[in-house]
Every structure is written in structure tokens, then in C-alpha cells.
């Protein structure tokens, strides 16, 4: 028989794993109990005249509460590179930590191609010790050739519409409208749940040179 503590922690890669609610493991028992109680109450209201927006807002507030702490990496000063060109002449890049790649170009974590999302979830403790792999995604990649796999977040939204985390289509629209000069030919994605130390080394050793080849004026970065 599970205790309540076991129960709320089991959503975090346990037997009730649910990446939308894994944050409950960061809450005290009382906090998690209050969250669940209110979630049930709002859900019950949906049977009558309740509002789905209230349910979504409650989940969002729960996530905010649970994750609200500073990064392990705290800096006092931030680098700043002014953006000089006119936006309508500028080449804009895109890089996300969403775990997207092109079909046929699987980054094959741990040497395993076609790893399922569930298999990735089962190996989360290995992912966070691993060096990340940068996936190169041509901007004209058809949506049905885009794949996503990431053990750290619920990918269901990204599976329905990559634009929620990898807005290639949207940036292409802005390119066609002349709002930006162009979207860089290649956009990038990797699995953000990785060794942060190894990531920093990869950026310096390899990624920066690869990405700078595109001569971008600015880049949009999207964490998940």
C-alpha cells in the first residue's frame, strides 16, 4: 500500500509517471494534497458549468509553484550583443531543447535508433549524464518528417503541432511576409535533459562553429 508521499512521487518517473504532473514530487505532502484537491474540485465543476480554462490555469500555477527556484547556474552579469541590422534584412536562427530531429536522422541516444518515448523516459537518469547531440533540421522539412523524443517533458503538444516548441512554419510565414529577412537554412534541436557540464563543452568545442557558419544576425532560443 502506497503512502501519500509514495503516490505523489510516483508521477515523477515512477509507476504513475506523468510528465505533466511530475512536479508534484517537488511539493510537500500538504502542498501536493492541496493541489490535487483543487484539481478534482475544478474538474468536478466541468460536469456543470465549469471552465476548462480554470483547470489549465491550476495546472500551470502548480508547475510554476513547484519549479520556482533559481538555476544551479547563477550569474550576476549577462553578456549582451546589440542587434544591429534591420529585422527585414536579418537572418534569424532557431534552436530549441525540444528533442526534435528529422526522420532518418535519428540521433540514436546510447546507440539505439528508433528509441520510443517510453524507452527514453525509462532511461532519464542516463540522459541527464549524457553528452547532448545537436540535430540539424532543414527549414523546409515537411512536418510529417519531424520526429520528437524527449524524456523530460510531455511531448504530446509537440506531436500534435511542432509549432508549440519548434515554430519553423511560423518563422517561414514571417519570412514570406518580409518581416524577417530570412529564416536560416538549418534550425537546431537537442534534448535539453542532458549533462550541463558536457553541454557547455559541446557548445564551445563544436556547436558554436557549426552554427556560426550560417552567419545569423540573431537567434530565437526555446527551452521546454
Amino acid at each position: 500500500m502506497d503512502t501519500f508521499n509514495d503516490f505523489k512521487n510516483s508521477f515523477n518517473y515512477g509507476k504513475r509517471n506523468n510528465l505533466n504532473f511530475k512536479f508534484m514530487s517537488l511539493m510537500t505532502d500538504d502542498e501536493a494534497a492541496n493541489f490535487i484537491e483543487e484539481l478534482l474540485s475544478l474538474s468536478g465543476e466541468l460536469l456543470n458549468e465549469g471552465n476548462i480554462e480554470n483547470v489549465i490555469e491550476h495546472i500551470f500555477q502548480g508547475q510554476k509553484f513547484a519549479y520556482s527556484s533559481p538555476s544551479k547556474y547563477v550569474y550576476q552579469e549577462g553578456p549582451f550583443n546589440p542587434f544591429i541590422p534591420k529585422l527585414s534584412d536579418a537572418k534569424i536562427g532557431l534552436l530549441t531543447s525540444s528533442g526534435h530531429f528529422v526522420a532518418g536522422d535519428d540521433p540514436a541516444p546510447f546507440g539505439i535508433s528508433d528509441m520510443t518515448q517510453q524507452e527514453a523516459i525509462n532511461r532519464i537518469s542516463e540522459f541527464v549524464k549524457e553528452k547532448p547531440t545537436l540535430s540539424f533540421i532543414p527549414k523546409d522539412t515537411p512536418v510529417n518528417k519531424l520526429c520528437v523524443r524527449h524524456a523530460g517533458y510531455d511531448i504530446s503538444g509537440a506531436q500534435i503541432d511542432p509549432g508549440v516548441v519548434l515554430p519553423i512554419q511560423e518563422l517561414s510565414t514571417l519570412e514570406q511576409q518580409g518581416i524577417i529577412g530570412e529564416l536560416a537554412q538549418t534550425v537546431y534541436s537537442f534534448v535539453g535533459a542532458c549533462s550541463q557540464g558536457k553541454l557547455k563543452k559541446e557548445i564551445e568545442k563544436k556547436w558554436m562553429d557549426q552554427i556560426k557558419e550560417q552567419c545569423m544576425d540573431g537567434i530565437i532560443l526555446i527551452p521546454v
Binding site: 547556474y73 553578456p79 550541463q196 537567434i219 530565437i220 532560443l221 526555446i222 527551452p223
Partner: peptide
């Protein structure tokens, strides 16, 4: 925060960045 490291590295290398995050 993976993307934070990347933003700082890009800026130091002359590429302006903007992060969109929840």
C-alpha cells in the same frame, strides 16, 4: 537550464539572442 548556457555563449560570440520560455 540548457538553453541559458547557449544564450550566454552565443552573445559572447557576437550573435544576438532572445529566449522564449514558459
Amino acid at each position: 537550464m540548457s538553453v541559458g548556457h547557449i544564450a550566454r555563449a552565443f552573445e559572447k560570440n557576437g550573435i544576438s539572442t532572445v529566449v522564449i520560455a514558459t
